[in-house]
Design a protein around this nucleic acid. Structure first.
Lengths: 263, 263
DNA sequence: AACATCGTTTCACAATATGGAACGAGAGGC
DNA sequence: GCCTCTCGTTCCATATTGTGAAACGATGTT
Protein backbone atom coordinates (compact mmCIF):
# COMPACT_ATOMS: atom_id res chain seq x y z
CA UNK A 1 0.00 0.00 0.00
CA UNK A 2 1.21 3.49 -0.82
CA UNK A 3 0.92 6.36 1.57
CA UNK A 4 -1.51 6.59 4.46
CA UNK A 5 -3.93 9.14 2.88
CA UNK A 6 -5.60 11.60 5.19
CA UNK A 7 -8.34 13.52 3.43
CA UNK A 8 -7.15 16.66 1.70
CA UNK A 9 -10.13 17.88 -0.31
CA UNK A 10 -11.10 20.72 -2.59
CA UNK A 11 -14.00 22.85 -1.43
CA UNK A 12 -15.51 23.91 -4.72
CA UNK A 13 -15.49 20.36 -6.03
CA UNK A 14 -17.08 19.09 -2.85
CA UNK A 15 -19.84 21.62 -3.28
CA UNK A 16 -20.38 20.69 -6.90
CA UNK A 17 -20.69 17.03 -5.98
CA UNK A 18 -23.06 17.91 -3.16
CA UNK A 19 -25.23 19.68 -5.71
CA UNK A 20 -25.27 16.60 -7.92
CA UNK A 21 -26.31 14.46 -4.99
CA UNK A 22 -29.20 16.76 -4.19
CA UNK A 23 -30.93 15.45 -7.28
CA UNK A 24 -30.93 11.93 -5.83
CA UNK A 25 -33.43 12.73 -3.13
CA UNK A 26 -36.61 12.20 -5.09
CA UNK A 27 -37.00 15.48 -6.97
CA UNK A 28 -35.39 15.23 -10.40
CA UNK A 29 -35.75 18.94 -11.13
CA UNK A 30 -34.34 21.65 -8.93
CA UNK A 31 -34.04 25.42 -9.11
CA UNK A 32 -30.98 27.40 -8.13
CA UNK A 33 -32.79 28.85 -5.15
CA UNK A 34 -33.94 25.47 -3.89
CA UNK A 35 -30.42 24.11 -3.98
CA UNK A 36 -29.10 27.30 -2.47
CA UNK A 37 -31.37 27.11 0.55
CA UNK A 38 -31.10 23.36 0.93
CA UNK A 39 -27.33 23.33 0.96
CA UNK A 40 -26.96 26.75 2.54
CA UNK A 41 -24.76 28.18 -0.16
CA UNK A 42 -25.10 31.61 -1.72
CA UNK A 43 -27.15 31.61 -4.90
CA UNK A 44 -24.28 33.04 -6.87
CA UNK A 45 -22.05 30.13 -5.96
CA UNK A 46 -24.69 27.58 -6.83
CA UNK A 47 -25.35 29.27 -10.15
CA UNK A 48 -21.66 29.27 -11.03
CA UNK A 49 -21.18 25.65 -10.06
CA UNK A 50 -24.25 24.63 -12.03
CA UNK A 51 -22.94 26.50 -15.04
CA UNK A 52 -19.74 24.50 -14.76
CA UNK A 53 -21.61 21.23 -14.45
CA UNK A 54 -23.72 22.20 -17.42
CA UNK A 55 -20.69 23.01 -19.55
CA UNK A 56 -19.71 19.37 -19.15
CA UNK A 57 -23.21 18.03 -19.69
CA UNK A 58 -23.60 16.71 -16.16
CA UNK A 59 -26.73 18.80 -15.75
CA UNK A 60 -29.04 20.48 -18.24
CA UNK A 61 -31.16 23.52 -17.80
CA UNK A 62 -34.74 23.45 -18.92
CA UNK A 63 -35.05 26.21 -21.49
CA UNK A 64 -38.37 27.52 -20.25
CA UNK A 65 -38.49 26.88 -16.52
CA UNK A 66 -34.83 27.67 -15.90
CA UNK A 67 -34.56 24.72 -13.57
CA UNK A 68 -31.93 22.01 -13.73
CA UNK A 69 -31.94 18.27 -14.27
CA UNK A 70 -29.20 15.66 -14.37
CA UNK A 71 -27.70 15.48 -17.83
CA UNK A 72 -26.98 12.82 -20.42
CA UNK A 73 -23.23 12.97 -19.88
CA UNK A 74 -23.72 11.39 -16.50
CA UNK A 75 -25.55 8.52 -18.09
CA UNK A 76 -22.80 8.16 -20.65
CA UNK A 77 -20.28 8.05 -17.85
CA UNK A 78 -22.14 5.30 -16.07
CA UNK A 79 -22.65 3.33 -19.25
CA UNK A 80 -18.91 2.94 -19.47
CA UNK A 81 -18.50 2.61 -15.74
CA UNK A 82 -20.88 -0.32 -15.74
CA UNK A 83 -19.21 -1.85 -18.76
CA UNK A 84 -15.93 -1.90 -16.90
CA UNK A 85 -17.45 -3.14 -13.69
CA UNK A 86 -15.90 -6.28 -12.29
CA UNK A 87 -18.09 -8.36 -10.04
CA UNK A 88 -15.39 -9.15 -7.57
CA UNK A 89 -14.42 -5.51 -7.19
CA UNK A 90 -17.96 -4.48 -6.46
CA UNK A 91 -18.64 -7.45 -4.23
CA UNK A 92 -15.49 -7.42 -2.14
CA UNK A 93 -16.46 -4.89 0.54
CA UNK A 94 -19.92 -6.43 0.88
CA UNK A 95 -18.46 -9.91 1.26
CA UNK A 96 -16.07 -8.74 3.90
CA UNK A 97 -18.85 -7.17 5.89
CA UNK A 98 -21.06 -10.23 5.59
CA UNK A 99 -18.23 -12.46 6.79
CA UNK A 100 -17.76 -10.09 9.67
CA UNK A 101 -21.34 -9.99 10.89
CA UNK A 102 -21.95 -13.71 10.47
CA UNK A 103 -18.55 -15.01 11.48
CA UNK A 104 -18.69 -17.59 8.70
CA UNK A 105 -16.90 -18.18 5.43
CA UNK A 106 -18.28 -16.08 2.58
CA UNK A 107 -17.41 -16.58 -1.08
CA UNK A 108 -18.17 -15.28 -4.54
CA UNK A 109 -18.30 -17.73 -7.43
CA UNK A 110 -19.08 -17.94 -11.11
CA UNK A 111 -20.01 -20.84 -13.32
CA UNK A 112 -17.44 -22.31 -15.67
CA UNK A 113 -18.72 -25.33 -17.51
CA UNK A 114 -19.83 -27.89 -14.96
CA UNK A 115 -17.98 -26.23 -12.11
CA UNK A 116 -18.47 -23.35 -9.78
CA UNK A 117 -15.26 -21.35 -9.47
CA UNK A 118 -14.34 -19.23 -6.46
CA UNK A 119 -13.45 -15.65 -7.35
CA UNK A 120 -13.16 -14.31 -3.87
CA UNK A 121 -13.37 -15.71 -0.37
CA UNK A 122 -13.34 -14.33 3.14
CA UNK A 123 -12.75 -16.64 6.08
CA UNK A 124 -13.15 -15.39 9.65
CA UNK A 125 -10.29 -16.23 11.99
CA UNK A 126 -10.28 -15.54 15.74
CA UNK A 127 -10.83 -11.84 15.52
CA UNK A 128 -10.32 -10.53 12.02
CA UNK A 129 -11.54 -11.64 8.64
CA UNK A 130 -8.88 -12.92 6.26
CA UNK A 131 -9.18 -12.46 2.56
CA UNK A 132 -7.35 -15.31 0.86
CA UNK A 133 -8.60 -18.87 0.90
CA UNK A 134 -9.28 -21.17 -1.99
CA UNK A 135 -9.54 -18.57 -4.71
CA UNK A 136 -9.77 -20.28 -8.06
CA UNK A 137 -10.95 -23.50 -6.49
CA UNK A 138 -13.37 -25.51 -8.63
CA UNK A 139 -16.30 -27.46 -7.27
CA UNK A 140 -18.86 -29.56 -9.18
CA UNK A 141 -21.86 -27.26 -9.65
CA UNK A 142 -24.53 -29.85 -8.83
CA UNK A 143 -23.07 -30.52 -5.38
CA UNK A 144 -22.73 -27.04 -3.91
CA UNK A 145 -25.21 -24.27 -3.14
CA UNK A 146 -23.55 -21.63 -5.34
CA UNK A 147 -23.43 -24.11 -8.17
CA UNK A 148 -27.12 -24.87 -7.86
CA UNK A 149 -27.99 -21.17 -7.86
CA UNK A 150 -25.90 -20.56 -10.95
CA UNK A 151 -27.47 -23.54 -12.72
CA UNK A 152 -30.94 -22.50 -11.65
CA UNK A 153 -30.73 -19.16 -13.44
CA UNK A 154 -29.08 -20.49 -16.58
CA UNK A 155 -30.95 -20.17 -19.90
CA UNK A 156 -32.72 -23.49 -20.39
CA UNK A 157 -30.80 -24.48 -23.56
CA UNK A 158 -27.47 -24.09 -21.79
CA UNK A 159 -28.78 -26.00 -18.81
CA UNK A 160 -29.90 -28.88 -21.00
CA UNK A 161 -26.40 -29.24 -22.41
CA UNK A 162 -24.93 -29.50 -18.93
CA UNK A 163 -27.47 -31.84 -17.39
CA UNK A 164 -26.99 -34.80 -19.72
CA UNK A 165 -23.63 -35.56 -18.14
CA UNK A 166 -23.08 -37.99 -15.33
CA UNK A 167 -23.21 -36.34 -11.88
CA UNK A 168 -20.82 -37.76 -9.31
CA UNK A 169 -22.04 -38.35 -5.74
CA UNK A 170 -19.68 -36.78 -3.20
CA UNK A 171 -21.74 -37.62 -0.12
CA UNK A 172 -24.92 -39.63 0.43
CA UNK A 173 -26.84 -36.34 0.12
CA UNK A 174 -25.47 -35.28 -3.27
CA UNK A 175 -28.20 -34.92 -5.89
CA UNK A 176 -27.32 -37.18 -8.83
CA UNK A 177 -30.71 -37.73 -10.44
CA UNK A 178 -31.35 -35.21 -13.25
CA UNK A 179 -35.07 -35.09 -12.55
CA UNK A 180 -34.54 -34.43 -8.86
CA UNK A 181 -32.03 -31.72 -9.69
CA UNK A 182 -34.43 -30.06 -12.14
CA UNK A 183 -37.10 -29.94 -9.47
CA UNK A 184 -34.60 -28.52 -7.00
CA UNK A 185 -33.48 -25.85 -9.49
CA UNK A 186 -37.07 -24.87 -10.08
CA UNK A 187 -37.59 -24.42 -6.37
CA UNK A 188 -34.41 -22.32 -6.16
CA UNK A 189 -35.59 -20.03 -8.95
CA UNK A 190 -38.86 -19.60 -7.09
CA UNK A 191 -37.44 -18.78 -3.68
CA UNK A 192 -34.42 -16.86 -4.90
CA UNK A 193 -31.73 -18.76 -2.99
CA UNK A 194 -30.27 -22.23 -2.57
CA UNK A 195 -29.17 -24.29 0.39
CA UNK A 196 -26.96 -27.36 0.57
CA UNK A 197 -26.79 -29.62 3.58
CA UNK A 198 -23.83 -31.98 3.44
CA UNK A 199 -24.17 -32.44 -0.30
CA UNK A 200 -20.57 -31.62 -1.09
CA UNK A 201 -18.77 -32.66 2.05
CA UNK A 202 -19.94 -34.37 5.23
CA UNK A 203 -20.57 -31.86 7.99
CA UNK A 204 -20.71 -28.86 5.65
CA UNK A 205 -23.76 -26.62 5.25
CA UNK A 206 -24.16 -23.65 2.92
CA UNK A 207 -26.59 -21.09 1.55
CA UNK A 208 -26.23 -19.10 -1.66
CA UNK A 209 -27.93 -16.23 -3.51
CA UNK A 210 -27.59 -14.92 -7.09
CA UNK A 211 -25.95 -11.71 -8.34
CA UNK A 212 -27.46 -10.02 -11.39
CA UNK A 213 -25.74 -7.66 -13.78
CA UNK A 214 -27.30 -4.63 -15.45
CA UNK A 215 -29.01 -6.75 -18.11
CA UNK A 216 -30.67 -8.87 -15.43
CA UNK A 217 -28.61 -11.96 -16.15
CA UNK A 218 -27.21 -13.94 -13.22
CA UNK A 219 -23.46 -13.66 -13.52
CA UNK A 220 -22.28 -14.84 -10.13
CA UNK A 221 -23.45 -15.99 -6.72
CA UNK A 222 -22.42 -15.44 -3.15
CA UNK A 223 -22.48 -18.11 -0.50
CA UNK A 224 -22.12 -18.53 3.23
CA UNK A 225 -20.77 -21.88 4.35
CA UNK A 226 -19.72 -23.45 7.61
CA UNK A 227 -19.65 -26.58 9.74
CA UNK A 228 -23.03 -28.19 10.25
CA UNK A 229 -22.78 -28.04 14.05
CA UNK A 230 -22.45 -24.24 13.96
CA UNK A 231 -24.30 -23.34 10.76
CA UNK A 232 -27.39 -25.37 11.60
CA UNK A 233 -30.51 -25.54 9.47
CA UNK A 234 -32.23 -23.17 11.91
CA UNK A 235 -29.41 -20.67 11.80
CA UNK A 236 -29.43 -20.77 8.01
CA UNK A 237 -33.15 -20.05 8.00
CA UNK A 238 -32.41 -17.03 10.20
CA UNK A 239 -29.71 -15.54 8.00
CA UNK A 240 -31.54 -15.91 4.69
CA UNK A 241 -32.68 -12.26 4.67
CA UNK A 242 -29.17 -11.03 5.43
CA UNK A 243 -27.64 -13.05 2.62
CA UNK A 244 -30.33 -12.04 0.13
CA UNK A 245 -29.97 -8.40 1.05
CA UNK A 246 -26.22 -8.48 0.51
CA UNK A 247 -26.67 -10.15 -2.87
CA UNK A 248 -29.26 -7.58 -3.89
CA UNK A 249 -27.07 -4.72 -2.85
CA UNK A 250 -24.23 -6.03 -4.99
CA UNK A 251 -26.59 -6.52 -7.94
CA UNK A 252 -27.83 -3.00 -7.49
CA UNK A 253 -24.31 -1.63 -7.65
CA UNK A 254 -23.73 -3.67 -10.78
CA UNK A 255 -26.49 -1.61 -12.37
CA UNK A 256 -29.35 -4.04 -11.91
CA UNK A 257 -32.66 -2.25 -11.63
CA UNK A 258 -35.71 -3.83 -10.14
CA UNK A 259 -38.43 -1.24 -10.19
CA UNK A 260 -40.30 0.05 -13.23
CA UNK A 261 -40.38 3.79 -12.95
CA UNK A 262 -40.65 5.47 -16.32
CA UNK A 263 -43.67 7.30 -17.64
CA UNK B 1 -36.23 33.01 -20.35
CA UNK B 2 -34.09 34.47 -17.59
CA UNK B 3 -30.76 36.05 -18.23
CA UNK B 4 -28.58 35.43 -21.25
CA UNK B 5 -26.01 33.19 -19.54
CA UNK B 6 -22.45 33.51 -20.73
CA UNK B 7 -20.27 30.75 -19.32
CA UNK B 8 -18.72 31.61 -16.00
CA UNK B 9 -17.14 28.38 -14.79
CA UNK B 10 -15.10 27.10 -11.89
CA UNK B 11 -11.71 25.73 -12.77
CA UNK B 12 -11.25 23.12 -10.07
CA UNK B 13 -14.68 21.66 -10.73
CA UNK B 14 -14.01 21.58 -14.44
CA UNK B 15 -10.85 19.63 -13.79
CA UNK B 16 -12.61 17.21 -11.50
CA UNK B 17 -15.25 16.55 -14.14
CA UNK B 18 -12.56 16.14 -16.77
CA UNK B 19 -10.99 13.48 -14.57
CA UNK B 20 -14.29 11.65 -14.31
CA UNK B 21 -14.68 11.71 -18.06
CA UNK B 22 -11.24 10.21 -18.55
CA UNK B 23 -12.64 6.93 -17.28
CA UNK B 24 -15.07 6.81 -20.20
CA UNK B 25 -12.43 6.20 -22.81
CA UNK B 26 -12.17 2.46 -22.53
CA UNK B 27 -9.91 1.95 -19.53
CA UNK B 28 -11.97 1.63 -16.37
CA UNK B 29 -8.94 1.80 -14.08
CA UNK B 30 -6.52 4.69 -14.05
CA UNK B 31 -3.55 5.71 -11.97
CA UNK B 32 -2.86 9.23 -10.75
CA UNK B 33 0.12 9.50 -13.06
CA UNK B 34 -1.81 8.37 -16.11
CA UNK B 35 -4.48 10.98 -15.54
CA UNK B 36 -1.86 13.54 -14.74
CA UNK B 37 -0.05 13.07 -18.03
CA UNK B 38 -3.19 12.60 -20.09
CA UNK B 39 -4.80 15.82 -18.86
CA UNK B 40 -1.54 17.66 -18.32
CA UNK B 41 -2.17 18.53 -14.73
CA UNK B 42 0.33 18.26 -11.91
CA UNK B 43 0.14 15.00 -10.03
CA UNK B 44 -0.54 16.78 -6.79
CA UNK B 45 -3.64 18.43 -8.19
CA UNK B 46 -4.95 15.20 -9.63
CA UNK B 47 -4.37 13.43 -6.36
CA UNK B 48 -6.22 16.09 -4.41
CA UNK B 49 -9.16 16.14 -6.79
CA UNK B 50 -9.37 12.36 -6.74
CA UNK B 51 -9.34 12.44 -2.95
CA UNK B 52 -12.30 14.80 -3.08
CA UNK B 53 -14.15 12.63 -5.56
CA UNK B 54 -13.42 9.62 -3.41
CA UNK B 55 -14.74 11.32 -0.27
CA UNK B 56 -18.09 11.48 -2.04
CA UNK B 57 -17.91 7.96 -3.43
CA UNK B 58 -17.66 9.06 -7.06
CA UNK B 59 -14.44 7.11 -7.41
CA UNK B 60 -12.89 4.35 -5.36
CA UNK B 61 -9.29 3.48 -4.95
CA UNK B 62 -8.20 -0.10 -5.27
CA UNK B 63 -6.64 -1.00 -1.94
CA UNK B 64 -3.70 -2.90 -3.40
CA UNK B 65 -2.92 -1.32 -6.75
CA UNK B 66 -3.60 2.25 -5.64
CA UNK B 67 -5.41 2.94 -8.88
CA UNK B 68 -8.85 4.45 -9.20
CA UNK B 69 -12.18 3.34 -10.60
CA UNK B 70 -15.57 4.99 -10.86
CA UNK B 71 -17.53 4.51 -7.67
CA UNK B 72 -20.92 3.23 -6.64
CA UNK B 73 -22.22 6.68 -5.76
CA UNK B 74 -22.19 7.56 -9.43
CA UNK B 75 -24.33 4.56 -10.18
CA UNK B 76 -26.71 5.54 -7.39
CA UNK B 77 -26.92 8.99 -8.90
CA UNK B 78 -27.83 7.63 -12.28
CA UNK B 79 -30.34 5.23 -10.85
CA UNK B 80 -32.32 8.19 -9.66
CA UNK B 81 -31.52 10.24 -12.72
CA UNK B 82 -32.99 7.55 -14.93
CA UNK B 83 -35.99 7.16 -12.66
CA UNK B 84 -36.79 10.83 -13.11
CA UNK B 85 -36.10 10.76 -16.82
CA UNK B 86 -38.93 12.00 -18.98
CA UNK B 87 -38.92 10.82 -22.56
CA UNK B 88 -39.94 14.12 -24.00
CA UNK B 89 -37.20 15.96 -22.10
CA UNK B 90 -34.55 13.62 -23.39
CA UNK B 91 -35.96 13.49 -26.89
CA UNK B 92 -36.58 17.19 -27.43
CA UNK B 93 -33.14 18.31 -28.61
CA UNK B 94 -32.80 15.27 -30.87
CA UNK B 95 -36.19 15.87 -32.42
CA UNK B 96 -35.34 19.48 -33.09
CA UNK B 97 -32.15 18.53 -34.81
CA UNK B 98 -33.82 15.85 -36.89
CA UNK B 99 -36.50 18.31 -38.00
CA UNK B 100 -33.74 20.71 -38.90
CA UNK B 101 -31.68 18.37 -41.04
CA UNK B 102 -34.66 16.81 -42.82
CA UNK B 103 -36.88 19.85 -43.09
CA UNK B 104 -39.92 17.73 -42.27
CA UNK B 105 -42.29 17.42 -39.35
CA UNK B 106 -40.93 15.29 -36.52
CA UNK B 107 -42.97 14.04 -33.59
CA UNK B 108 -42.75 11.95 -30.45
CA UNK B 109 -45.73 9.81 -29.48
CA UNK B 110 -46.82 7.25 -26.93
CA UNK B 111 -49.58 4.69 -26.99
CA UNK B 112 -52.73 5.30 -24.97
CA UNK B 113 -55.32 2.60 -25.48
CA UNK B 114 -56.10 2.41 -29.20
CA UNK B 115 -54.54 5.77 -29.96
CA UNK B 116 -51.11 7.21 -30.51
CA UNK B 117 -50.77 10.49 -28.62
CA UNK B 118 -48.39 13.27 -29.63
CA UNK B 119 -46.08 14.36 -26.81
CA UNK B 120 -43.90 16.69 -28.77
CA UNK B 121 -43.77 17.96 -32.32
CA UNK B 122 -41.44 20.08 -34.38
CA UNK B 123 -42.60 21.55 -37.65
CA UNK B 124 -40.16 23.31 -39.97
CA UNK B 125 -41.28 26.69 -41.26
CA UNK B 126 -39.42 28.76 -43.85
CA UNK B 127 -36.19 29.05 -42.00
CA UNK B 128 -36.53 27.97 -38.39
CA UNK B 129 -38.09 25.00 -36.72
CA UNK B 130 -41.15 25.70 -34.57
CA UNK B 131 -41.89 23.67 -31.53
CA UNK B 132 -45.64 23.64 -30.96
CA UNK B 133 -48.04 21.84 -33.22
CA UNK B 134 -50.65 19.27 -32.38
CA UNK B 135 -49.30 18.28 -29.00
CA UNK B 136 -51.79 16.00 -27.29
CA UNK B 137 -53.40 15.08 -30.58
CA UNK B 138 -54.74 11.52 -30.75
CA UNK B 139 -54.63 9.35 -33.85
CA UNK B 140 -55.91 5.78 -34.27
CA UNK B 141 -52.87 3.56 -33.78
CA UNK B 142 -53.56 1.18 -36.67
CA UNK B 143 -53.58 3.99 -39.23
CA UNK B 144 -50.31 5.81 -38.48
CA UNK B 145 -46.67 4.77 -38.56
CA UNK B 146 -45.96 5.62 -34.90
CA UNK B 147 -49.05 3.72 -33.88
CA UNK B 148 -47.96 0.65 -35.79
CA UNK B 149 -44.52 0.76 -34.21
CA UNK B 150 -45.97 1.06 -30.73
CA UNK B 151 -48.36 -1.81 -31.40
CA UNK B 152 -45.62 -3.93 -32.91
CA UNK B 153 -43.54 -3.91 -29.72
CA UNK B 154 -46.44 -4.43 -27.36
CA UNK B 155 -46.52 -7.61 -25.23
CA UNK B 156 -48.68 -10.08 -27.14
CA UNK B 157 -51.44 -10.32 -24.49
CA UNK B 158 -51.96 -6.57 -24.53
CA UNK B 159 -51.94 -6.58 -28.30
CA UNK B 160 -54.61 -9.27 -28.42
CA UNK B 161 -56.90 -7.16 -26.27
CA UNK B 162 -56.55 -4.22 -28.65
CA UNK B 163 -56.88 -6.10 -31.93
CA UNK B 164 -60.36 -7.55 -31.42
CA UNK B 165 -61.91 -4.13 -31.90
CA UNK B 166 -63.19 -2.79 -35.18
CA UNK B 167 -60.59 -0.77 -37.10
CA UNK B 168 -61.92 2.20 -39.04
CA UNK B 169 -60.65 2.89 -42.57
CA UNK B 170 -59.51 6.50 -42.96
CA UNK B 171 -58.24 6.18 -46.52
CA UNK B 172 -58.34 3.36 -49.07
CA UNK B 173 -54.87 2.34 -47.80
CA UNK B 174 -55.74 1.99 -44.12
CA UNK B 175 -55.16 -1.52 -42.82
CA UNK B 176 -58.42 -2.82 -41.35
CA UNK B 177 -57.96 -6.57 -41.53
CA UNK B 178 -56.54 -7.98 -38.22
CA UNK B 179 -54.58 -10.69 -40.03
CA UNK B 180 -53.00 -8.21 -42.42
CA UNK B 181 -52.13 -5.94 -39.51
CA UNK B 182 -50.57 -8.80 -37.56
CA UNK B 183 -48.36 -9.64 -40.53
CA UNK B 184 -47.42 -5.97 -40.90
CA UNK B 185 -46.56 -5.70 -37.19
CA UNK B 186 -44.39 -8.77 -37.47
CA UNK B 187 -42.50 -7.19 -40.34
CA UNK B 188 -42.07 -3.98 -38.37
CA UNK B 189 -40.61 -5.86 -35.41
CA UNK B 190 -38.19 -7.53 -37.80
CA UNK B 191 -36.97 -4.43 -39.58
CA UNK B 192 -37.09 -2.09 -36.60
CA UNK B 193 -39.18 0.67 -38.14
CA UNK B 194 -42.57 1.31 -39.73
CA UNK B 195 -43.75 3.27 -42.73
CA UNK B 196 -47.21 4.50 -43.67
CA UNK B 197 -48.13 5.66 -47.16
CA UNK B 198 -51.43 7.52 -47.19
CA UNK B 199 -52.94 5.24 -44.59
CA UNK B 200 -54.09 8.00 -42.32
CA UNK B 201 -54.68 10.87 -44.70
CA UNK B 202 -54.51 11.12 -48.47
CA UNK B 203 -51.20 12.57 -49.60
CA UNK B 204 -49.43 11.96 -46.27
CA UNK B 205 -46.38 9.74 -45.87
CA UNK B 206 -44.54 8.88 -42.66
CA UNK B 207 -41.83 6.73 -41.12
CA UNK B 208 -41.42 5.84 -37.47
CA UNK B 209 -38.94 4.14 -35.12
CA UNK B 210 -39.22 2.92 -31.52
CA UNK B 211 -37.71 4.36 -28.34
CA UNK B 212 -36.69 1.94 -25.57
CA UNK B 213 -36.29 2.70 -21.89
CA UNK B 214 -33.65 1.25 -19.60
CA UNK B 215 -35.60 -1.99 -19.15
CA UNK B 216 -35.72 -2.52 -22.89
CA UNK B 217 -39.44 -1.87 -23.19
CA UNK B 218 -40.68 0.32 -26.02
CA UNK B 219 -42.17 3.36 -24.35
CA UNK B 220 -42.51 5.79 -27.23
CA UNK B 221 -41.80 6.27 -30.91
CA UNK B 222 -40.57 9.07 -33.10
CA UNK B 223 -41.84 9.76 -36.58
CA UNK B 224 -41.05 11.87 -39.61
CA UNK B 225 -44.05 12.81 -41.72
CA UNK B 226 -44.69 15.00 -44.74
CA UNK B 227 -46.59 15.46 -47.98
CA UNK B 228 -46.29 12.53 -50.39
CA UNK B 229 -44.96 14.72 -53.19
CA UNK B 230 -41.99 15.80 -51.08
CA UNK B 231 -41.52 12.84 -48.75
CA UNK B 232 -41.57 10.24 -51.50
CA UNK B 233 -41.09 6.54 -51.03
CA UNK B 234 -37.52 6.89 -52.32
CA UNK B 235 -36.72 9.73 -49.97
CA UNK B 236 -38.10 7.75 -47.05
CA UNK B 237 -35.87 4.83 -47.97
CA UNK B 238 -32.94 7.23 -47.91
CA UNK B 239 -33.62 8.67 -44.50
CA UNK B 240 -34.27 5.39 -42.70
CA UNK B 241 -30.74 5.26 -41.23
CA UNK B 242 -31.00 8.84 -39.98
CA UNK B 243 -34.31 8.22 -38.25
CA UNK B 244 -33.16 4.95 -36.72
CA UNK B 245 -29.99 6.55 -35.46
CA UNK B 246 -31.87 9.36 -33.78
CA UNK B 247 -34.22 6.91 -32.11
CA UNK B 248 -31.30 4.80 -30.90
CA UNK B 249 -29.53 7.81 -29.50
CA UNK B 250 -32.61 8.77 -27.52
CA UNK B 251 -33.00 5.21 -26.24
CA UNK B 252 -29.38 5.22 -25.24
CA UNK B 253 -29.82 8.37 -23.21
CA UNK B 254 -32.84 6.81 -21.56
CA UNK B 255 -30.47 4.17 -20.20
CA UNK B 256 -31.08 1.46 -22.78
CA UNK B 257 -28.06 -0.75 -23.25
CA UNK B 258 -27.53 -2.86 -26.28
CA UNK B 259 -24.20 -4.53 -25.92
CA UNK B 260 -23.31 -7.29 -23.49
CA UNK B 261 -20.07 -6.30 -21.89
CA UNK B 262 -19.70 -7.79 -18.43
CA UNK B 263 -17.35 -10.58 -17.46
C1' DA C 1 -48.16 49.36 -12.00
C1' DA C 2 -45.72 47.96 -8.29
C1' DC C 3 -43.94 43.86 -6.42
C1' DA C 4 -41.96 39.32 -5.63
C1' DT C 5 -38.99 35.91 -7.38
C1' DC C 6 -36.21 33.97 -10.53
C1' DG C 7 -31.18 33.09 -12.39
C1' DT C 8 -27.13 35.55 -13.74
C1' DT C 9 -23.51 38.94 -13.33
C1' DT C 10 -20.39 42.16 -11.14
C1' DC C 11 -16.47 43.19 -8.28
C1' DA C 12 -13.28 43.87 -4.36
C1' DC C 13 -11.31 40.82 -1.18
C1' DA C 14 -8.80 37.09 0.73
C1' DA C 15 -9.61 32.54 1.17
C1' DT C 16 -8.53 28.79 -1.36
C1' DA C 17 -6.58 26.05 -4.94
C1' DT C 18 -2.24 25.47 -7.02
C1' DG C 19 2.15 22.96 -8.32
C1' DG C 20 7.10 22.27 -7.63
C1' DA C 21 9.64 19.77 -4.53
C1' DA C 22 10.10 16.61 -0.77
C1' DC C 23 8.40 12.35 1.39
C1' DG C 24 7.47 7.49 2.30
C1' DA C 25 6.38 3.04 0.44
C1' DG C 26 6.52 -0.73 -2.84
C1' DA C 27 8.47 -3.15 -6.91
C1' DG C 28 12.14 -4.72 -9.56
C1' DG C 29 17.00 -5.19 -10.86
C1' DC C 30 21.61 -6.19 -9.88
C1' DG D 1 20.74 -6.79 0.70
C1' DC D 2 21.15 -2.43 -1.53
C1' DC D 3 20.08 0.64 -5.01
C1' DT D 4 16.95 2.84 -8.01
C1' DC D 5 12.52 3.83 -10.26
C1' DT D 6 7.94 4.86 -9.80
C1' DC D 7 4.07 5.20 -7.34
C1' DG D 8 0.55 8.31 -4.59
C1' DT D 9 0.45 11.66 -0.94
C1' DT D 10 1.88 15.70 1.65
C1' DC D 11 4.11 20.29 2.40
C1' DC D 12 4.11 25.11 1.86
C1' DA D 13 4.84 29.74 -0.12
C1' DT D 14 2.48 32.07 -3.75
C1' DA D 15 -1.09 34.48 -6.26
C1' DT D 16 -4.48 32.63 -8.79
C1' DT D 17 -9.04 31.60 -8.21
C1' DG D 18 -13.29 31.09 -5.98
C1' DT D 19 -16.25 33.61 -3.10
C1' DG D 20 -20.68 36.04 -1.69
C1' DA D 21 -23.25 40.51 -0.86
C1' DA D 22 -25.41 43.34 -3.70
C1' DA D 23 -26.92 44.86 -8.20
C1' DC D 24 -29.11 43.48 -12.51
C1' DG D 25 -32.55 42.23 -15.85
C1' DA D 26 -36.28 39.41 -17.00
C1' DT D 27 -40.84 36.81 -15.60
C1' DG D 28 -44.86 36.21 -13.65
C1' DT D 29 -48.08 37.67 -9.90
C1' DT D 30 -50.95 40.61 -7.04
Amino acid sequence: MPNTKAGQTVQSVERALAILKTFSNGEPELSVSQISSRLKMPKSTVSRLLATLQAHGFVVQDAETGRFRLGAELIALVHSAIAGLQVHHVARPHLRQLANTLGETVSLSVLDGHDAVNLEQFVPTQRLVMRVGWVGRRMPAHAVSVGKVLLAFLPSEELDQLLDQQMEPLTPNTITNPTTLRRELHRIRQQGYATAFEEFEEGLHAISAPIHDHTGRVIAAISVSGPAYRLTRERIADIIPTVLETAQRISWEMGYMVEETNR
